[in-house]
Design a protein around this nucleic acid. Structure first.
Lengths: 192, 192
DNA sequence: AAAGATGCGTGACGAAAGTCACGCTCCTGT
DNA sequence: ACAGGAGCGTGACTTTCGTCACGCATCTTT
């Protein structure tokens, strides 16, 4: 079960983990199962863990005053799930993270973060991840400000074809910041 | 001139810089002046430096196919300016960064990054900065997806009152992702 | 097997925002 | 000092998108 994570780390950091490092990781990151619709994190809680998705799919969303969901992240295998703000700064989260399919996760508890970051490959990986997430968030923001609903959908389709297969289209619509009806019409007016 | 940066680092990292560390920083980060409308970075270039704004104001924007600007960042004193993607991964930038007022900057050249990151306080600061930027980008995205133009403006006003003073309102409009006319009307319909 | 929930398309309508056009004021550079 | 440009408000019109409503198919639960 941890092999998948080791592969991920090696790929990301371009370093190779020693036996000893692997055993530290194994001892620190505990497996956890979630059934569909169970919560990894709920609004108001402090995010105690960062999760690595070994299998399954999750969604992260906020809830506004009118009770509308706004999807921040749709995640599948080999993605990390966390509310960084809540996790790093130990403040209550504004987000829900919910299993959308049955999930197998590996949990990194906040208290063990420093232990893991002392491993160079992990340190590099975290740095890279943070960087990449930030860049992706910036790109998504740029798209959201600049492009029409249809263009945003086409971009999304190009970037994350696997995600489209696994989530219903009204979730994609929320991720893109449009109503499900608008997305539905955009898709039919588009080539398909 | 470098004192302002030292203060910033001490505040951010909650550590104190040694004399030796300060002299390293001074030797690595060269001052640079920009006149209003000069570019710190242009689309297509590889972003060679990260800049710390000692004095002045800058704006970062992308240009779409129709030639419309989309403002990604409005920055003033004690902010950092960089296209992270271009700087970290040494790829051509999609953004312009332009001085909006005459500026005094301190430049961190990409080649010196590792030198600086070996200083613990700087390392912590960079980590924190990246984290905070990411969190802010996520919040901005959430707002852009969730809120009406007026609400977004009110939020922005609450978060960055100094910025509103220093940039013309059509730049704010672009930052918020609305037309200047819509922002103008929103402001007059709002309490003031 | 039946009943409810969920997903998704589509029409009708209205609200929100973009676009185009005009005019006024205040800088700024020559 | 004067001309040109930038910033900003505002009206008229158009486009985009959200909302409400309905219908249908599939999935889930009992």
């Amino acid at each position: 079960m941890h092999e998948q994570l080791f592969d991920y780390i090696n790929r990301y950091s371009k370093q190779t983990l020693s036996e000893q490092e692997m055993s530290i990781i194994t001892s620190v990151m505990e497996p956890k199962r979630l059934r569909k619709k169970q919560y990894f994190l709920e609004e108001g809680e402090i995010c105690a863990n960062t999760g690595f998705i070994v299998k399954g799919a999750t969604r992260q969303y906020s809830l506004d005053e009118e009770g509308n969901e706004h999807i921040m992240q749709l995640a599948i295998e080999n993605w990390w799930i966390v509310d960084r703000n809540s996790f790093m700064n130990q403040v209550p989260s504004a987000y829900f993270i919910e299993a959308w399919e049955d999930c197998e996760l590996l949990l990194l508890p906040r208290a063990k973060l420093d232990t893991l970051l002392s491993i160079p490959a992990i340190n590099t990986m975290f740095w890279q991840m943070s960087e990449n997430n930030h860049i992706a968030a910036q790109k998504r923001l740029d798209d959201t400000i600049s492009l029409s609903a249809i263009k945003r959908y086409e971009n999304f389709q190009r970037l994350y074809p696997q995600i489209i297969q696994r989530f219903p289209s009204h979730q994609i619509a929320s991720y893109l910041g449009v109503s499900r009806e608008t997305l539905s019409r955009a898709r039919s007016r588009s080539v398909r």
